[in-house]
Write a protein that binds this DNA or RNA. Structure first.
Length: 203
DNA sequence: AAAAGCTGCAACCGCGTACGT
DNA sequence: TACGTACGCGGTTGCAGCTTT
């Protein structure tokens, strides 16, 4: 991806995994988009660097729990839910930023095959990655890849089928959404990380 | 040059569950 | 046990920037 979007800082993350909050402050690229709700006086939209700082400070003192308390202690016009999300997906230490590696992608595919859309569980197996990040990555990259593969797979299978009945059966399988409702799955194969490409997992 | 469409990501929303009273 | 509140999760939306027409 070559986008350079100030509001998401994806490219800043790629410059450094650890310095993005500092960078955005120094560079002043963060766009202040939070809008104050007329009804509830609760801020919505993008977080400002000031809000991030306040939230991080309060969590450093009180810990990452009782989110409504944290929100009020930080003096943020945010709900606890929003604070939690911000912390979990952005401010939390040890968050790995940048591109998903091939190994990670492969692991996501395997885990998704096993667990389905259980993003938090999948994220739990990928140190430093958040469920939101994986979900987004799946929706924007992997789901398309899989659809393409399935499409290709259906075409290939069709070609190989001689019997008309069998052909019809195959079409029905593809037409049923293609999602893994009837996929046979070998758990042993899934957890077999002996392959050299998973050496990093064993480490 | 500009309008329309597309993409990727952060954030919001609604629901189910856990927990405390 | 019943109820209220907080939390966590997955689906969805909104928006900035890019690409295409």
């Amino acid at each position: 991806m070559t986008n350079l979007r100030p509001h998401s800082y994806s490219n800043l993350y790629r410059l450094s995994n650890h310095t993005y909050p500092i960078l955005e402050t120094i560079m002043g690229v963060k766009k202040e988009r939070s809008v104050s709700s007329k009804r509830s006086q609760i801020n919505k939209g993008a977080w400002t660097s000031e809000e991030d700082t306040k939230l991080a400070e309060v969590i450093a003192v009180h810990g990452a729990k009782s989110w409504n308390t944290i929100a009020s202690k930080a003096g943020l016009k945010r709900c606890g839910k929003s604070c939690r999300l911000r912390w979990m997906n952005y401010l939390r230490p040890n968050i790995k930023r940048g591109n998903i590696s091939e190994q990670e992608e492969d692991l996501i595919l395997r885990l998704h095959k096993l667990l389905g859309n259980r993003w938090s569980l999948i994220a739990g197996r990928l140190p430093g990655r958040t469920d939101n990040e994986i979900k987004n990555y799946w929706n924007s990259h992997l789901s398309k890849k899989i659809k393409q593969k399935e499409k290709q797979g259906c075409i290939d299978e069709k070609r190989s089928v001689e019997n008309g009945k069998e052909e019809l059966r195959q079409e029905n399988t593809c037409a049923a959404g293609g999602e893994d409702s009837n996929i046979s799955f070998d758990v042993d194969e899934f957890f077999d990380f002996s392959d050299e490409k998973f050496e990093w997992m064993n480490r």
